[in-house]
Amino acid sequence: MESSYVLEVASIDTKQTENDLSFIGGQPCIPESMEIPVCQLCGAEQTFFFQIAFPQDHFWHGFSMAVFACTACAHEEYFIPEMLQEVLPGINIPKGFLETYQKNFKINIFETKEGIIRKDYKEKVEFQRWNLKPTSDSNLAHNKLGGQPNWLLDDEAPGTYMDSIPMFFLMQFMEGMKFKIVEEAPPQIILNLRGNPEPSKHRYYKLFLANYLYFFGTKDRSNPLVYVLTQI
């Protein structure tokens, strides 16, 4: 079992610095060679939502995870990540799925030491620093890294990737997570009651409809990949 950390947003307004490794919004701190991802559905640059540097006692220590998603289009079939169709839990994720299911979002894993603030990305989500606060309660129902998932419905934890690589629980977001946006950011495109895309009236973005989010990783440091699923 991985150690558990509460994802606690800093209580005071702060500005992003080169030393920030775990945070919401601002500009991503990713390798210079890593392209800002583009949505495969509409071609727009994806929005940077957050990133986390995995702590010393984590299996992926030395690595960071940066999460992007498109806010410029809305498609009924792509509001949440593609789901596996077989019976869960303990499912085997087939070869290639963890790359191909990322059509209008992108989860990048990279060596933390290679990250630099990407000035070529225009900030959309307001920067907020994350403090990783250790907790002894692995079942704590909170936005957290490690510990045990707090399933809203049935256990849907995957078992393996490619029949042989174990999967393990990375982190979760509770329902209703809202990402406040900066003044210049365009509104998120949503579907109205008629099923037509239109700009949201809210000054925040939602990641995968702000459902409960569960992130799982491959227990393979040579090729770290992520499976994310939602419950509502």
Rank of each mutant, 00 (worst) to 15 (best):
V9W: 13
E123P: 03
L229H: 03
G147R: 13
D13P: 03
V67F: 04
K122Q: 13
I12C: 01
F215L: 06
M83D: 09
I52T: 06
L132P: 05
K95A: 05
R203I: 05
Y101Q: 11
I91C: 03
L140M: 15
F208V: 06
D57L: 11
F49L: 06
Q27T: 11
E99H: 09
Q51V: 00
R221L: 06
G26A: 05
P187L: 12
P134T: 14
K124V: 10
G217I: 04
Q27H: 00
M162I: 14
P149W: 11
E45C: 02
I232F: 04
N196F: 08
C39G: 02
N92K: 12
I93S: 03
E18H: 14
Q148W: 11
T17I: 14
F49Q: 05
R221F: 06
E8C: 09
S11Q: 15
E175V: 05
V182R: 15
A53M: 00
G195H: 07
F127Q: 10
K178N: 07
N211V: 07
L7H: 03
L132C: 07
S4D: 05
N150G: 05
L132W: 11
L191Y: 01
A10S: 13
E18I: 15
M34S: 10
F54P: 03
Q231G: 02
E32S: 02
Y212G: 05
Y212I: 08
T230S: 08
F50N: 07
V125C: 06
N223Y: 09
C29T: 13
